[in-house]
Simulated assay, not measured.
Amino acid sequence: MLAVTTAALALAIGGCNKTDNTNSSAPDQPAQAAKAAGDQTISAALDKNGRFYQAAHSAGLDSTLAGPGPYTVLVPKDDAFSKVDGALKDAANPENRAELTRVLTYHILPGTVLIEDLGKAVDNGKGKALVQTMNGQTLTATKDGAKVVLTDAVGNKATIVDGDQKRSNGVVQYVDTVLMPAAASKAPAKS
Results as ranks from 00 to 15, higher is better:
residue 128 K to V: 01
residue 128 K to Y: 10
residue 130 L to A: 12
residue 130 L to F: 08
residue 130 L to R: 10
residue 132 Q to D: 04
residue 132 Q to W: 02
residue 133 T to M: 10
residue 133 T to N: 06
residue 134 M to G: 11
residue 135 N to D: 09
residue 136 G to R: 01
residue 137 Q to P: 03
residue 137 Q to M: 08
residue 141 A to S: 13
residue 141 A to C: 13
residue 141 A to G: 13
residue 141 A to R: 12
residue 142 T to E: 12
residue 142 T to Y: 03
residue 142 T to G: 07
residue 142 T to N: 07
residue 142 T to C: 09
residue 142 T to D: 05
residue 142 T to I: 07
residue 143 K to W: 06
residue 143 K to M: 14
residue 144 D to E: 15
residue 144 D to V: 00
residue 145 G to R: 00
residue 146 A to K: 10
residue 147 K to M: 08
residue 147 K to L: 03
residue 147 K to Q: 15
residue 147 K to T: 12
residue 148 V to M: 08
residue 149 V to A: 09
residue 149 V to M: 14
residue 149 V to L: 12
residue 151 T to G: 03
residue 151 T to E: 08
residue 152 D to W: 01
residue 154 V to E: 10
residue 154 V to K: 13
residue 154 V to C: 04
residue 154 V to N: 05
residue 155 G to V: 09
residue 155 G to T: 07
residue 155 G to N: 10
residue 155 G to S: 13
residue 155 G to Y: 09
residue 156 N to G: 11
residue 157 K to N: 11
residue 158 A to E: 01
residue 158 A to W: 00
residue 159 T to A: 12
residue 159 T to K: 10
residue 159 T to G: 04
residue 160 I to E: 00
residue 160 I to Y: 02
residue 161 V to G: 03
residue 162 D to Q: 14
residue 162 D to G: 12
residue 164 D to C: 11
residue 165 Q to R: 15
residue 167 R to H: 15
residue 167 R to S: 12
residue 168 S to T: 14
residue 170 G to Q: 07
residue 170 G to L: 09
residue 170 G to E: 03
residue 171 V to G: 04
residue 171 V to M: 04
residue 171 V to I: 15
residue 172 V to F: 04
residue 173 Q to V: 06
residue 174 Y to H: 13
residue 175 V to D: 04
residue 175 V to E: 00
residue 176 D to R: 03
residue 177 T to A: 11
residue 178 V to L: 06
residue 180 M to E: 13
